[in-house]
């Protein structure tokens, strides 16, 4: 009899350091399941970024290096160009990908680099203690928007998955969430397609994963998971660009 549920081979056995209710752990697991299913563990090169997920190398069992804050997509570009046979992916937060590193992210996507980027969007800077991030929601309270984010002074949160979808070089762009089993299944599909965009040499693969930060949202884990539904009102879930599915269909 086969075991229906196992720890992915590419997930290290280290206990997560993440806070209770944080969804990094779920996202890590999904990435590892996809790596296992695609059989790319021994040809992957991951770029970990700066933020809570900087310790990615303690959890995902593939070759990995850190990059300076925001520069993961540039580092991934260099690695992929030097070794096109490797499967190169970045795992970044919304601050790393969309604030300090947006130019590197945007340009790599525009060039159609054959890399995969996972952006965890929890609307806040978690590691530094809950400051506003580019994707902090209008009205959301953070330590640097104590009265709530006022778009008049702080501007509006950019919808990264939709923005990247407009770029010719992007082969796959989707926004997913992890606050229900169904959504988790969909998220995994999206991550797989973002990797397939690279494996099939179609272009930049991108998934924005809406995630929680109960500690900095000042919520208990259950309320935080529910609160993601509010986030979805501003950041709709969906697949905004998909060259992968038609490509795979044509193969059949």
């Amino acid at each position: 009899m086969s075991k229906p549920f196992q720890v992915p081979k590419s997930l290290k056995k280290n206990p997560f350091h993440y806070c209770p209710g944080c969804q990094h752990g779920v996202a890590h697991r999904l990435v590892c399941e996809v790596i296992d299913e695609l059989g790319i563990q021994d040809k992957s090169l991951a770029i970990s970024s700066i933020g809570c997920s900087v310790f990615l190398y303690f959890y995902i069992d593939v070759d990995m290096t850190e990059a300076p804050h925001g520069r993961a997509c540039a580092a991934a570009t260099g690695a992929k160009r030097a070794r096109p046979d490797l499967m190169v992916f970045t795992y970044q937060g919304d601050g790393d990908f969309a604030a300090i590193g947006f130019n590197e992210s945007f340009q790599a996507a525009a060039r159609g680099e054959k890399i995969t980027s996972i952006m965890i969007n929890n609307n806040i800077y978690g590691m530094t203690g809950g400051q506003a991030s580019p994707t902090t929601l209008p009205g959301q309270k953070t330590t640097t928007t104590p009265a709530g984010r006022d778009p008049e002074t702080f501007g509006y949160p950019p919808k990264i998955a939709e923005i990247l979808a407009t770029l010719e070089g992007v082969a796959y762009s989707a926004r997913v969430a992890l606050n229900s089993p169904k959504r988790i299944v969909e998220a995994k599909k999206a991550i797989k397609n973002a990797f397939l965009a690279q494996i099939k040499n179609l272009g930049f693969g991108f998934v924005e994963i809406l995630s929680t930060c109960p500690i900095n949202w000042k919520m208990d884990p259950v309320s935080a998971v529910k609160a993601v539904d509010k986030v979805i009102e501003y950041f709709p879930l969906g697949i905004f660009k998909d060259k992968v599915t038609p490509f795979l269909k044509n193969l059949k």
Binding site: L45, I47, T65, A67, P68, R71, A74, A75, A76, T77, G78, A79, K80, R81, A82, R83, L86, V88, N103, E104, Q107
Partner: peptide, 26 residues
Amino acid sequence: GVFLQAESELAAINMILGACATGARA
């Protein structure tokens, strides 16, 4: 070999970082 004009010096040096990580002369 690989030549790529980066979008900035910030990107260029981090492309180097990525390429060097693979052991390539960059």
